[in-house]
Simulated assay, not measured.
Amino acid sequence: MPALPGQAEAPASPCVQICALDAADICLGCGRSRDEITRWMRASAAERRAICDAARDRLALRHLPPTPAR
């Protein structure tokens, strides 16, 4: 959907086709919550950006730094 003048375009879905929810209902692939996934199609551009930011932060918290080579 094209953005109106002065508005940023809505981000694309962060889905990476790895759709599996953990015990907290967070997708292991994209980092969105079950609620965020179901709200995505109705979300405004600003809401989508906030969802993407939150999902990115969740995924970053999940990943541990690489184990040093021995």
Rank of each mutant, 00 (worst) to 15 (best):
T38N: 07
M1K: 14
R32N: 02
R58T: 10
P2I: 07
A54T: 14
I18A: 11
H63Y: 08
A43V: 07
M1F: 10
C52E: 08
Q7G: 01
P68D: 10
S13D: 15
A12L: 15
P2R: 14
A43G: 05
A23M: 04
W40L: 06
V16G: 03
P2M: 10
G31W: 00
P65M: 09
A12D: 15
R56W: 07
H63I: 13
R58Q: 11
A20W: 00
R56L: 12
Q7N: 14
A20F: 02
A24Q: 14
A50P: 08
D22Y: 03
A43F: 06
P66H: 09
P14A: 14
A43Y: 07
A8D: 15
G31M: 00
A23C: 02
C15L: 06
Q7Y: 14
L64C: 04
E9A: 15
A3V: 01
R49S: 09
E9Y: 02
C30K: 01
S33L: 02
R48F: 04
T38H: 07
R32T: 00
A46N: 08
I26S: 00
A43R: 03
A45H: 07
P5D: 11
G31H: 00
A46C: 03
R70A: 14
R32D: 01
S33A: 04
A3K: 14
A55E: 08
I37Q: 04
A24V: 01
P65Y: 09
P66Y: 05
P65C: 07
M1A: 15
T67H: 09
Q7M: 15
R70W: 08
A46L: 10
P2L: 15
P2A: 13
W40G: 04
C19Y: 07
D57A: 13
A55Q: 05
E47Q: 12
R48A: 04
A46Q: 12
I51N: 01
R39T: 04
M41V: 10
I37D: 00
A50V: 04
I26Q: 02
P11L: 05
I37K: 03
T38M: 08
A45P: 13
A43S: 15
P66I: 05
R42M: 11
R39F: 03
A45G: 12
E9R: 15
L61V: 07
D25T: 02
D35M: 01
Q17L: 11
I37F: 03
A24H: 11
C15D: 04
L61C: 11
G31A: 03
L61D: 10
P65R: 14
L64F: 09
Q17W: 01
E47K: 09
L61R: 13
V16L: 08
C19N: 06
R56D: 10
R48C: 09
R39Y: 01
E36V: 00
R49K: 09
L61A: 13
Q7K: 13
C15T: 05
A20D: 04
A54H: 08
A69I: 12
E36D: 12
R39L: 07
I26R: 02
S13Q: 05
G6W: 05
A45S: 14
R58C: 06
D57C: 06
R42A: 13
W40T: 06
A46M: 06
S33T: 15
A23F: 02
P11M: 06
R39H: 07
L4N: 13
G29S: 01
A55Y: 05
A12N: 14
A69G: 06
I26G: 00
L4V: 03
L4A: 15
H63D: 10
P66G: 09
C52M: 11
A23R: 08
R49F: 13
